[in-house]
Write a protein that binds this DNA or RNA. Structure first.
Length: 280
DNA sequence: TGCCAGGAGTTAG
DNA sequence: CTAACTCATGGC
């Protein structure tokens, strides 16, 4: 299957390598990844997104996945009134927030707890290889992200053998609740930001930061403002003269300052801080 | 070797 | 309510 979509204001490298998704591989000239049940290769040139997939994905789903319906210049005008964000925009122009599969995103960020991105990628790749379905396109082979029911049935020891550590119990417990339909992520999506966050935080392994990442990267809740140690330090230094603030206070401040697209501001601020202050 | 990595749950005060 | 401790492992 091939698709061509108009895609202005898109930088694939910034978008796919900024840490919001963990399964995209740079093949040099294009990126290979998995969306739903399809292996997908994407490239961007002349304002168009070129997509080749192993199975039908649908033009609408692709537009949605890459966030192409969002008016990025308008978002920039809004959050770019802040001079720091404005500088970050200049550096990372074209970084878009994706709209990923909700269960995959939730599971991925449960695994992200207290570890680094290379290891998160390894855990997700192992889970997919072990419990997903093989998909191929040309020479590329990959695996779909496993259903919640598949993880729910998995042996804890098998999950730990993939390097999940203490996260194995968290993800199995949450997978079980989703498989048993105790919680329905589509219904969570119908709730407002506050209510949706409350629902997600009730799951094992999901705290405020993980919930905000999931809401931002797969629920289109753009007011979500994930606060990790980098963002917390950055907010304190930039806006509180170095005074210590709680993560909740930092997020409240950000929503007031940046408005309904605070989550976009968070992404740009995060990468700006990592770039300016080293280690990234 | 030592130290850190985009945290969350539990327990203690 | 906040603070301290634990959880496991790859990468440098």
């Amino acid at each position: 299957m091939k698709y061509i979509l108009p895609a202005r204001d898109l930088n694939l490298e910034h978008t796919l390598e900024c840490g919001q998704a963990f399964r995209w591989e740079d093949l040099g000239g294009c990126y290979s990844g998995v969306i739903g049940g399809a292996l997908v290769k994407v490239s961007h040139s002349c304002g168009k997104l070129l997509v080749e997939s192993s199975a039908p994905v649908g033009k609408e789903r692709l537009e949605d996945y890459f966030g192409l319906n969002e008016d990025l210049p308008s978002i920039y005008r809004h959050i770019g009134k802040d001079p720091v964000i404005n500088k970050a925009i200049k550096k990372f122009r074209g970084l878009r927030i994706l709209n990923q599969d909700r269960w995959e995103c939730l599971a991925s960020f449960i695994l992200s707890s207290y570890t680094n991105i290379p290891r998160i990628k390894k855990m997700i790749a192992g889970l997919s290889r072990g419990f997903g379905r093989r998909v191929a396109l040309g020479d590329s082979v990959n695996y779909t992200f496993p259903e919640a029911s598949g993880i729910a049935k998995a042996d804890i020891r098998a999950l730990k053998a993939l390097g999940l550590g203490f996260r194995a119990e968290y993800i199995k417990e949450t997978a079980s609740r989703i498989a048993a339909k105790e919680i329905d992520l589509d219904e969570v999506g119908d709730l407002n930001y506050e209510q949706a966050k409350k629902a997600l935080v009730s799951l094992k392994g999901v705290g405020g930061k993980v919930a905000d990442c999931v809401l931002l990267f797969s629920f289109k809740k753009y007011e979500a403002f994930p606060v990790d140690v980098w963002i917390k330090r950055g907010i304190e230094d930039l806006y509180f003269r170095g005074k210590t603030v709680s993560p909740e206070e930092a997020a409240r401040f950000a929503r007031r300052r940046f408005g309904p697209y605070a989550g976009y501001a968070q992404e740009y601020l995060y990468h700006y801080l990592r770039h300016e202050r080293g280690r990234g």
